[in-house]
């Protein structure tokens, strides 16, 4: 009679066919009635095969193993698998776990975090954190340099605005001085930069006479169709209407008027475009006294948000003074 639970030794004897028939029947009845006994027998079966593979069973038992245990093809497959497993385990030996005492909750927690899955997860998370952190640092540096660039641009814009304001004041003073010299009130035109050495023209103390003149883009200096501006003796001011492409969208423009020999006559910034029935144009007032007979070139530049200028177009016209 076998006492419960089954001893491993009895199971081994049973699997080697070395138990008397009644005890074999008893083990079988227990195994088919209780799943735990069945699993116990299967576990002992695996250990028995492993022991045979490693040479850890006595010679007399080896005989039973060969003649009884390995009778079925299925058992021989298990045996072949055990041999392969032993070989592979030797090739893949890992350090044995070093545990001397029963684990506390902190040990279990540590064991949980040192499990390979967790270790890989933490390694991955650390890598991810590293990349995110690096990206944040790089992005912060990029933002700082962007802010510095914007501050520089703003300072440059401010300086340019100051310069423009200064130019405006200077030109107004010059204009007033010129007008005072000619005995006429100063023109209310925006920021004319009149060359000091322009020849003064005789004027009358009556209301200023203004002549309007339109300039269209796309006419080259050598073209035969260069427009001609006739300026009468009584004209005080020439109002140039500089036509621009409707797609030009600078907020401010700068016009530079010069002779074909390159001598600057007048320059004015802070000009703005106006829409009209015939398209967009920029009004640009030039004192008639600043113009003499000859060919002129007007360079129109757009002022960008950052304060730099970009060429918009060049306009050419002839002046004939009457």
């Amino acid at each position: 009679m076998i006492e419960a639970p089954l001893s491993e030794q009895n199971i081994r004897l049973y699997l080697l066919g070395e138990l008397p028939e009644p005890e074999q029947v008893e083990i079988e009845d227990l195994a088919f009635a209780d799943q735990r006994v069945l699993e116990q027998i299967q576990a002992v079966e695996q250990d028995l095969i492993d022991d045979y593979v490693s040479g850890d069973i006595p010679e007399d038992k080896r005989q039973s193993f060969q003649t009884h245990f390995l009778a079925s093809a299925e058992r021989r497959k298990k045996f072949a698998f055990a041999k392969a497993l032993a070989t592979v385990v030797k090739e893949n030996t890992v350090p044995a776990p070093d545990v001397a005492i029963a684990p506390s909750w902190s040990t279990k927690l540590a064991a949980f975090f040192t499990r390979p899955v967790m270790a890989y997860s933490f390694a991955l998370a650390s890598l991810l954190l590293f990349f995110v952190g690096s990206w944040l640092v790089v992005d912060r540096i990029r933002l700082r340099s962007e802010i510095a660039r914007l501050q520089t641009a703003q300072e440059s814009q401010t300086a340019q605005n100051r310069q423009l304001e200064k130019d405006l004041v200077d030109e107004r003073l010059r204009n007033q001085e010129l007008m005072a010299n000619r005995g006429t009130p100063p023109q209310q035109t925006p920021t004319p930069e009149v060359q000091p050495d322009s020849p003064p023209q005789p004027t009358t103390p009556t209301s200023p006479v203004v002549v309007a003149f339109s300039l269209v883009p796309g006419i080259s200096r050598s073209s035969n169709s260069v427009p001609q501006l006739a300026i009468g003796k009584d004209v005080n001011l020439v109002r140039l209407q500089i036509g621009i492409d409707p797609q030009e969208n600078y907020r401010r423009y700068r016009a530079e008027l010069r002779t074909v020999s390159g001598q600057q006559v007048l320059a004015q910034g802070n000009l703005s475009a106006r829409g009209g029935s015939h398209g967009r144009s920029i009004p640009f007032g030039v004192p008639a006294t600043a113009l003499g007979n000859g060919k002129y070139e007007l360079a129109l530049k757009g002022i960008t948000e950052s304060g730099t200028t970009e060429d918009v177009g060049f306009y050419y016209f002839d002046v004939v003074k009457k």
Binding site: D56, L85, V89, P97, V99, A111
Partner: peptide, 22 residues
Amino acid sequence: IQYYQGDKGEKIENRRKLGQRL
């Protein structure tokens, strides 16, 4: 790998430690 590694006595000790660790 840890469960099956080692010779007879070493294997038993490995398994005991493995059980404790887990």
